[in-house]
């Protein structure tokens, strides 16, 4: 069993699911990707996940929906939101609800690393 922290990516966009895990592995993390919140919840990765990279707007259960569901299930996984909607109003709301960070796509690897470091320190 790997001792590297598991980062789970939940995003309905395929190019994110394809590219982000590779970069995360280059960073030295373990990475898995899921195309929906439901798929993530149904997996056995929930309890293994050290940090969640979570898309905000997804068909079906949204990112914030998943955040609430995890709170109800008392799964306190640090969450870094990633969104392609550059809405400055959304960011403070998500942070107020307990997210570690909210990154606007496209984000740099520096910003991503910084967010992950914050998340894993929590």
């Amino acid at each position: 069993m790997s001792t590297r922290p598991l980062i789970s990516v939940v995003d309905d966009d395929e190019s994110v699911r394809e590219s982000l895990p590779d970069l995360l592995k280059e960073f030295g993390f373990d990475a898995q990707s899921f195309s929906s919140a439901e798929e993530f919840l149904a997996s056995d990765s929930v309890s293994q996940t050290s940090c969640l990279l979570l898309d905000v707007a997804m068909p079906g259960m949204t990112g914030p929906d998943l955040q609430r569901e995890l709170t109800i299930r008392r799964q306190e996984i640090p969450i870094v939101f990633i969104t392609a909607h550059r809405d400055e109003l959304v960011r403070p709301r998500l942070l107020a609800q307990g997210a570690v960070e909210c990154l606007f796509k496209p984000f740099t690897e520096t910003d991503l690393l910084a967010a992950l470091n914050t998340a894993l320190r929590v």
Binding site: S15, S19, D22, L23, E26, P106
Partner: peptide, 24 residues
């Protein structure tokens, strides 16, 4: 907004892939 969303998705992929590529 929807154009930005549509464009930001591939841009995100481009930057992430290019970052990974450089590290590799």
């Amino acid at each position: 907004a929807s154009i930005a969303h549509e464009v930001n998705q591939p841009l995100s992929g481009i930057i992430t892939n290019a970052s990974t590529c450089m590290r590799m």
